[in-house]
């Protein structure tokens, strides 16, 4: 286990060190102490290493992650795991706005609540939130899965493309072109796998599935006068 004191040694040194690790590294386990809400902790990693952040972080923690597993023993600010490509990001506490935004792959687990715009424009990432999510979540979400064990806020899935949304609790309101859909056996299997990987004991049967009604995909000539 390598320990890095962020307060003593600075952010740039941390990210340079972590980004310098590759598939052959024998330093596979890292601990970041004294994060004190700093921004851009453990961003741009591209190696199968495990990084544990001992405390809460600011903006953009674990952004652009590939391969690495980043665990945060605290809460995270806006934009956690933004544009993640692969790997895992696990947050013990809450996440602020736009968690997992534009993520292409990998798994983001938030054990507390996520606030507004969770999974906005997600492009293949899987996100599992143990608690609730805020308004405008999965806005223009294109691919991937968003699983919410609690409740969802206003305008869930507005202008949704092909991402799948699963919510166990209530949905305050659905956004434009987002509808409830049937839960088929393949969805239950998918959900079961995601919940297990995310360490949630929620039952797949308790969830409802939401997806795109696909009415906004093409221009409707009846709307011509609106432009």
């Amino acid at each position: 286990m390598q320990t890095y004191d962020l307060e003593a040694n600075g952010l740039r040194g941390l990210n340079e060190t972590l980004q310098a690790q590759n598939a052959e590294t024998n330093q596979t386990s890292w601990e970041v102490v004294n994060p004190k809400g700093s921004h851009a902790i453990a961003v741009g990693l591209d190696a199968p290493i495990e990084v544990t952040v001992k405390g809460s972080t600011g903006y953009y923690c674990a952004g652009m992650n590939q391969q690495a597993t980043v665990k945060v023993e605290g809460s995270v600010g806006p934009g956690v795991a933004e544009n993640m490509m692969s790997g895992q990001v696990i947050v013990d506490g809450d996440a602020s706005q736009y968690a997992g935004a534009t993520g292409h792959g990998g798994l983001l687990v938030i054990k507390g609540n996520a606030s507004s715009r969770c999974g906005i424009s997600m492009k293949g990432i899987d996100i599992v939130v143990h608690g609730n999510i805020g308004h405008m979540s999965a806005f223009m979400a294109q691919a991937g899965n968003l699983v919410v064990c609690g409740d969802a806020g206003d305008a869930l899935g507005d202008s949704l493309y092909e991402a799948r949304l699963f919510v166990r609790g209530s949905v305050k309101s659905l956004g434009a072109d987002c509808i409830e859909k049937d839960m088929r056996p393949e969805h239950l299997a998918l959900l079961s796998d995601l919940l297990e990987r995310a360490g949630s004991d929620a039952k797949p049967e308790e969830f409802k599935r939401y997806g795109s009604a696909r009415q906004l995909y093409n221009f409707d000539v009846d709307n011509a006068q609106a432009y």
Binding site: G37, H39, G58, Y59
Partner: peptide
């Protein structure tokens, strides 16, 4: 106390 910050950094 009750504290407010634009970012958590301000409260640490």
């Amino acid at each position: 106390y009750v504290a407010f910050g634009s970012e958590y950094r301000a409260l640490v």
